[in-house]
Simulated scan of single mutants.
Amino acid sequence: LAELEAAFQLKGIMEEEKTPPDVFTYGVLMNGLCKDGRLEDASQLFDEMCGRGLVPNDVVYTTLINGHCKHGKVDSGLELYGMMLKKGLRPDLFTYNTLVYGLCKEGDLRRARKVVDEMAQWGLKPDKITYTTLIDGSCKEGYIEMALDIKNKMVGEGITLDDVTFTALISGLCKHGRVVDAERNLREMLEAGWKPDNITYTMVIDGFCKMGDVKMGFKLLKEMQDSGCVPGVVTYNVLMNALCKQGQIKNANMLLDAMLNLGIAPDDITYNILLDCRCKHGNPKEFDQLRCEKGLVHDYASYTSLINEITKPSKDYENS
C-alpha cells in the first residue's frame, strides 16, 4: 500500500514537471489498484488515461479484466473483454484464463466453456491452468462426469496433471460420494510423482469413514504417516467420529492416546465427539474423568449432548 501511494506521488511530480505519465505508467498504477481491490479507482484512472488521448493496449485491458474477475466483478471483466476486441486488440492466454477463472468462480460453466471455445479464434489452446480451472469449477457445481472428461482431454493432449488438478478432482469426487474414484485418483497422483498433502488424504479418509469403511480410513492414515505426511487434529477427528458412530469407544480412546503420544493436541471437536459417543454408547459420567485428565473446558456442544442424554426417555419408561 505504501509503495502504491509512493507511485501516485511520483505521478504527481511527473505532472508538475510537465512530463505526463505514459500508457506503461498508467498500467502499473492500475495494476496496483486492482491488486488492492480498488476497482473504481482503477476505472477512473483508465478514464483519465483515455481522456488524455492515450490509447490503452492489451496489457492495460488484461490488467483491468484480471482485477475485476479476481474480485467477483466478472460482468465488468467481460465488458472490458468486449471493448478490447472492438479495439482490434489480441487477448492472450492469460486474459482468457482470467475470464475462465472468474466465470467458474461464479459457477457459470456454460459461459466459461464458451470463452474457451473463443480462444481458438486467436489460435490459442487451453493449457494446464485453463483445464484445471474448468475441472475445479465443474466439481464444485457437481458436474463430476464433465470434470473427468476434461481430465481425459488433458491426458489426450499430452498435458500433465499436477497436484492442484488432482486435488480438485479428489475433492469433487469425495464431496459427491465417489470415494472409490477419489482413491483411484489419489493413486494416480502418487504414481505421477506428486505428494498428496494432509488435506487431500483427509478428504479421502473422511469419504471412506462416511461409507462406514473405517478400516480403509486407518489404512490411509498409516500410508500418510509412512510417506512423511503428518496428520493433523482434523484427520484424527474424522477417524474418531467414525469409530464413535460404530460404538467403538475403546478404539476411540486408544486413538486419543495415540494423538497425545504424537504431540497432537485434541481440540473441542475431539472431546465433543467422545462425549457424544459416551452419551449414546456408554456412560456420560465417564466423560468427567476424561475431561479432568485432558483439561477440557465445557462448551455449548458438550452441554447440548448432556441435555439430550438426560432428557432422552429410558427404555424402561418406554416399555412401561
Rank of each mutant, 00 (worst) to 15 (best):
274 L>I: 04
8 F>M: 05
108 D>I: 05
117 D>R: 15
90 R>A: 03
49 M>I: 01
251 N>C: 02
175 K>H: 10
86 K>E: 13
18 K>L: 09
249 I>T: 14
192 A>C: 09
115 V>T: 05
314 S>I: 02
312 K>I: 00
177 G>L: 11
112 A>Y: 08
208 F>H: 13
28 V>I: 15
174 C>W: 09
33 L>W: 02
46 F>T: 01
187 R>D: 12
20 P>M: 12
252 A>K: 11
28 V>N: 02
133 T>N: 06
199 I>E: 12
44 Q>F: 05
219 K>E: 10
132 T>E: 09
5 E>W: 06
48 E>R: 06
242 A>I: 04
203 M>Q: 11
272 N>W: 09
114 K>A: 12
317 Y>H: 12
259 M>W: 07
243 L>A: 09
280 K>V: 02
305 S>N: 04
119 M>I: 06
183 E>C: 12
113 R>Y: 06
189 M>Y: 09
187 R>S: 08
281 H>F: 15
153 K>N: 10
107 G>C: 04
173 L>W: 09
127 D>M: 07
220 L>Y: 08
60 V>F: 04
15 E>Q: 13
246 Q>G: 14
116 V>S: 10
38 R>T: 01
153 K>F: 08
160 T>E: 15
68 H>P: 00
149 D>C: 06
275 L>E: 03
268 D>K: 13
212 G>A: 09
104 C>E: 06
227 S>A: 15
14 M>Y: 06
90 R>G: 00
228 G>D: 07
79 E>L: 09
12 G>I: 01
106 E>C: 09
241 N>E: 14
102 G>H: 03
23 V>L: 04
164 V>A: 10
181 D>N: 15
267 D>Y: 10
244 C>H: 05
59 V>N: 01
22 D>A: 13
200 T>W: 11
284 P>Y: 08
301 A>S: 09
155 V>I: 15
305 S>I: 01
177 G>V: 02
304 T>Q: 14
25 T>L: 10
93 L>W: 03
125 K>E: 15
315 K>L: 14
300 Y>H: 13
155 V>A: 13
28 V>P: 01
22 D>V: 10
97 N>D: 11
189 M>W: 10
13 I>S: 11
168 A>I: 07
5 E>K: 12
228 G>W: 11
57 N>K: 03
189 M>N: 06
126 P>E: 11
46 F>V: 01
95 T>I: 05
27 G>P: 03
9 Q>A: 13
227 S>E: 14
138 S>L: 03
254 M>S: 13
312 K>E: 12
309 E>N: 10
296 L>E: 07
142 G>W: 06
86 K>Q: 13
11 K>P: 01
38 R>G: 00
255 L>K: 12
126 P>K: 13
137 G>L: 04
217 G>C: 05
10 L>P: 00
176 H>W: 15
285 K>I: 08
314 S>F: 03
33 L>F: 02
292 C>F: 08
120 A>L: 10
196 P>I: 07
89 L>H: 03
105 K>P: 00
150 I>K: 08
289 Q>M: 08
199 I>S: 04
34 C>W: 07
